[in-house]
Design a protein around this nucleic acid. Sequence first.
DNA 1: AACTCGGGGCA
DNA 2: TGCCCAGAGTT
Length: 216
Amino acid sequence: MEGKKARVGVILKILEREYGQLESGLRFENPFQLLIAVILSAQCTDVRVNRVTKRLFANYKTPEDFAALGQEELEEEIRECGLFRNKAKNIRKTASILLRDYECRVPSTREELMSLPGVGRKSANVILSHAFGQDALAVDTHVYRVSHRLGLADGKTPLATERQLLQLIPREKWTQAHQWLIRHGRRVCRARKPRCEVCILREHCRRVLVCGEEGA
DNA sequence: AACTCGGGGCA
DNA sequence: TGCCCAGAGTT
């Protein structure tokens, strides 16, 4: 375990040197905006979400605004993010729950966040760590894939991987580690055709020998 | 933990 | 067109 932690420390140092301090890929000014962005971001790129929320938040700002929005009107606004019928439904329902139960504030516990429609464990962790500075590490497929390739985790589910990473990574680095792994996963350690030839972590990668042999 | 599911991306 | 896949929800 201690040896593994040392290895993780080396890897985190390399990522930090390469990428520096990173912010969330989702642009937001307050927890409510992040909540909406996170619901929209399921199976959708941050670029699209940011484009949509920029328009959206110019006209609608509060849970009241969103709860009052018609289903079809909202669908039209968020069409670009895909799954728009479900997402519109979830956003309107979530907004009215905030109105009814939370005095229009976004709750800050994982249980409460996950009870909102459209918010699962991954999204709840994003909100906890990025809007409330709380201890959480969101494991999406990028984090999952990269941490497995680097040998930081071998859990068979995102939850198992989350627990392994929480053990290995110092608490104060959880939020940044999440951002670094995502950035590295998007730019270099891609699911298909990983760019091993430019990877700064290739000597730490379990799969360095097979990279390039698959998906090419 | 294992499953289902709707729909977007890409071959 | 068909295959793959992320992530929420369900059991």
